Simulated assay, not measured.
Amino acid sequence: MSMWLYPQKILFSNKFMSIAKSNAIVKQDKIGPIGGTSIDEKSILTITKAISESIDRRSSMIWAYDNDMVDVLDLAQREIVTMSKGNFSLDDKTKHFIDTTGIAAHTRGQQAAVLSIFELFQKNALFFIWYKKLCFKSEYKGSLVLLNLDFSPSIHSLLLLIENGRYFFGMGSGMTCEESMRSAYEEAKLLRYQDSNAYAINFNKSRFRYSAGTITQYKYFLRIYNNVTHYKNKVDNIKLEEKNLFNLIPEWIEHLSISKIPNNQINRLVVVKAYSEELYNSLPFKKIVVETNHLKNSMFIIKDISSIPDIPSI
């Protein structure tokens, strides 16, 4: 295993940033993702988080183009089912597009499963916020936030951070509004500080430039924000470790499966991937939505979206 770490103090900040990269997996001339990046006030935590992200993103390529079958747990149906390994790996076919959405690594398997589910819900909450305007508004540390509750009991946030005249979006998840918004804020900050050597998956350009939002996205976000109501409800502070995985799945989802993914890099880390044919298993870019919307759960049915700008790259 090859891994490089770059813990560094962010200028004019009390935070550190680390970048971790492992050796890539290549299949059918396609190179899988390998990079992980994190920021935190403690340098050791940034290293740990960056390594975890690097490992889970690398693991998304292990079963790519593999049609063998594997037993997985369908949380919605509460039963073991058999599915193709290809559903739990990267897939570049438009009508079955899968990126690193829904994959997570942690030293505890239960926590890895929770985070993988949150990851999957988060990208689909972005669909509801951006295309259907199903959200409430709030504020966090001076930034505007849109909250989606369709995956209750979990809450998912889209936050807009404006610094030096540039726009950065962050998505976050949690069992409380505070936790969700804090997570979104940290991601927006991460994208703000990411240096020019951190590369986004499948893009040969710096993630810093790639992740900055556009003026069009900014104006569209404001239009949504100005036309939805404030979030006022309070949610019980439920610890993730104590949360039953089955209870995380909303009743309107009929099938959602999770599987442990092989990890031959760091044995202490458990990698879990969540998948549902009813949901988007990638960022819901307009091209993917237009071509696959009819295949998803009826909750996702939407009319013409040609006048809506594409989602921010998060």
Rank of each mutant, 00 (worst) to 15 (best):
I62T: 11
D150N: 14
A64P: 09
A112T: 11
I155D: 04
F127Q: 03
H106G: 07
G86A: 06
N124D: 00
V114I: 12
K132R: 06
D68W: 00
A105E: 00
M83T: 08
M61P: 07
D150C: 08
A113T: 11
I80C: 06
Q110A: 06
L75P: 10
I55W: 07
N87M: 00
D99Y: 10
P153V: 02
D92G: 03
S59A: 15
V81S: 00
S116W: 02
A112H: 11
F118L: 13
E53H: 11
S43H: 10
R58M: 04
V114D: 02
F151E: 05
A50Y: 08
L45T: 13
V145H: 12
M83Q: 13
F136M: 11
L75H: 05
G109S: 13
T100L: 03
Q77W: 04
D99H: 08
T107N: 05
D56H: 15
S116R: 07
V114F: 04
I44H: 09
R108V: 11
L45G: 09
I62K: 08
D91R: 08
P153A: 08
S89R: 01
L90D: 05
T46R: 04
Q77R: 14
F97Y: 15
L144A: 15
L115C: 02
H96K: 12
N67Y: 09
I98C: 09
K132Q: 12
K137M: 01
L144Y: 12
N67R: 11
G109T: 15
A50T: 06
S138G: 10
D99T: 15
M61I: 03
R108S: 15
R58S: 03
T46P: 09
S89V: 01
I44L: 07
I47S: 10
N124M: 00
V72L: 09
V81W: 01
M61L: 03
S84V: 06
K49D: 15
F88V: 00
N124R: 00
R78D: 14
L75K: 05
G109P: 11
T82V: 07
A112V: 13
Y140I: 08
G102H: 02
L120D: 01
P153H: 02
P153M: 05
R57L: 04
S154N: 07
S152K: 12
S43T: 08
T82L: 01
P153N: 01
Y65Q: 09
F128W: 08
N67Q: 13
S52Q: 14
K137G: 00
S143H: 11
D56N: 13
W63R: 03
S116G: 15
D92H: 08
V81D: 01
D99G: 13
F151V: 06
R58Q: 10
A125F: 08
N67P: 01
N67L: 13
Q77T: 04
A112D: 04
H156R: 04
Y131M: 04
F128Q: 09
S89M: 00
H106F: 09
F127R: 02
I80A: 02
G102S: 05
Q122C: 12
I80L: 04
L149N: 11
T82C: 06
